[in-house]
Design a protein around this nucleic acid. Structure first.
Lengths: 117, 117
DNA sequence: TCATGAACCCACCATAAGGTAACCACCCAC
DNA sequence: GTGGGTGGTTACCTTATGGTGGGTTCATGA
């Protein structure tokens, strides 16, 4: 992500956080509630495990998602969820999503990316 | 930009349009009104002519900016301006900019990226 | 006449982002 | 005791993106 240290405005910085190829898809998937790693992978067709891992790590270090690892008795169970910051980011993303739906994929099948679940 | 042909949601597509390293800066600069090429270059420190040209071409082919070349008598005078679509994109970008300002560069000097000029 | 500015184009290059594929430890079911 | 699922890691490899440094045309200014 080339994480820059100087931004000239807020969008600049926000795009840097959200600009990865699969980032918004991850945010969108997590918007419905916490997900396990495998659920995310299956829910985002085309993403590889490596890329999903690294994107999740970046989102985690940006404070957007929250990783919870529970080794309950037997298997390890890792759950990813949006932090409050992630929820607010999703809300801020909503108008852009509406714009994209309206102007970019007019009439094509598309899902809704609303802010609140 | 790898211009994909299938998008799973609107944000996905919008990020693809706006995801270049300097795209939002260009949009932001054009938000104050039409600019000539040299003005843009001077107004966005760090961007090279080649990258500025190619990003402007992409934004133009996406219908975001409008390029007007006027050879008025002597010199060629090229002016770039936002199309109505570009104006609406900027408006849709505003909440994301506000989010970035608030959460990413808290307290640092930053300019405002409002929708309407 | 030479230099400078505008608005590029072009060839090449460096890096970073993303993709492929293999491997790992752990546990469970068969 | 072998295979499958979970949740990864690691080492490459490819491609896209952006950067460097030149060249270009026309006009103006000194």
């Amino acid at each position: 992500m080339t994480r820059r240290d100087t931004y000239v405005c807020g969008i600049d910085a926000a795009i840097d956080v959200v600009g990865g190829k699969w980032k918004v898809l991850i945010l969108w998937a997590l918007n419905d509630g916490p997900c396990r790693f495998g659920e995310l992978r299956r829910g985002i067709p085309g993403v590889t495990e490596k890329v999903l891992t690294s994107h999740l790590r970046e989102l985690e270090s940006d404070g957007i998602v929250f990783r919870e690892e529970a080794v309950e008795g037997a298997v390890r169970r890792v759950t990813y969820a949006l932090t409050p910051l992630g929820v607010s980011l999703n809300a801020a993303l909503a108008p852009l999503g509406a714009w994209g739906r309206e102007h970019l994929l007019n009439g094509r099948a598309s899902h809704d990316h609303a802010a609140a679940s």
